[in-house]
Design a protein around this nucleic acid. Structure first.
Lengths: 201, 201
DNA sequence: CCTACCGATCGGTAGG
DNA sequence: CCTACCGATCGGTAGG
């Protein structure tokens, strides 16, 4: 039998995390029970506690692997383009292609804010720092003349644009205002680019 | 005894809503118990059911009165300014002054999205429609040359700017990146305005 | 409007 | 890794 890279314990651990992620993203943390997680993972309740010491530890483990930032930032890093404009449009298309059809990927971030008051944010942020620095380095090398805006504000506004898009999308998809939805992200990117770039000379 | 405009039943009802609002915004819906609400409102558990038939009904009542939209839209309507630029800056200052120091005002909206999958959005939206139409009317009369952007996208981007600001503010307030926070909303408004306005001729 | 209760379910554990 | 259990708490109600 070939030595599998992934042990059985590791596989069970991941099954628990996957099951818990799916349930929590759909129901929220408090509304999801350890028994639901066990059942979805194909285990008994007690078995979970061989891998995680508490429900809270399960949630922490989920965040380490599935926090939206860990989906978003790598996608941004993989976006093509040598100018700011190319990069922004490419990043938007990549994000919409990968995440557009399951906007509930933001739920984990929102749940952490609402149900945990953002207490895990520093740890997640710290773990992401290398990826963020890599992205910042990349961005600062892009071609294009940016107006006088602090670089960190730029990054914040850029990230915020996607939050803004996905949350308003979630809200609007519940109403009849379909007109608001066509090409909205393209328009968002357009406003953002026009907002940060100097007029072409 | 003068006939008070507000009956005792009405007062108890509001006490329940106030207590439930404070608890739910801080803990989330599922994590808040009817017993906690009763205690905070100064009642016994059973008494709540003289005013609301279920926990869900309490939540619906909260949304009718305290949904963030009911705080945001009137504030936007009260913003001064005859040009788009004046209006946007005034609106930003008003919002930051009224809501800036308790950003948890967005929690109710986020909780509704996460724990109820946005099922109450249509009803809230419908109730707000008059206020929204009034705001749209107001906006369309402002001075300023806007680039070719669908009006509904404009409104969406404008609202989204505040979501984006408050959520990134919540995230960043947990990290050490204080630099990112100074005057951020002013910059956001600036980027937005520069993004939607035609260059001055 | 309160007290006392209902059955159900919760997170977690002992013991094997 | 499972079965069977622990005490605590849940939403909701009966009866007064």
């Amino acid at each position: 039998m070939a030595a599998d890279i992934i042990s059985k314990g590791e596989r069970t651990s991941r099954a628990i995390i996957d099951a818990a992620y799916a349930l929590i993203v759909e129901q929220g943390y408090a509304a999801t029970s350890m028994r639901q997680i066990a059942e979805k993972a194909g285990l008994s309740l007690g078995a979970i506690y061989n891998h995680f010491s508490s429900k809270d530890e399960v949630f922490r483990a989920i965040l380490e692997v599935r926090h939206p930032f860990f989906q978003i930032v790598p996608l941004l890093n993989s976006a093509k383009g040598e100018s700011i404009e190319e990069f922004a449009r490419s990043a938007a298309h990549t994000l919409i292609a990968e995440l557009g059809h399951h906007p509930e990927f933001l739920n984990l971030l929102l749940i952490e804010i609402v149900e945990f008051k953002g207490e895990h944010v520093p740890r997640v942020f710290e773990k992401m720092l290398p990826m963020i620095l890599q992205l910042a380095q990349r961005l600062s090398n892009l071609e294009g003349n940016v107006r006088e805006i602090p670089q960190l504000v730029l990054v914040r506004a850029f990230m915020g644009m996607f939050f803004s898009y996905f949350i308003t999308e979630t809200l609007l998809s519940r109403t009849a205002l379909v007109e608001m939805q066509s090409n909205a992200l393209d328009h968002f990117v357009d406003i953002f680019l026009h907002g940060i770039l100097l007029e072409k000379g």
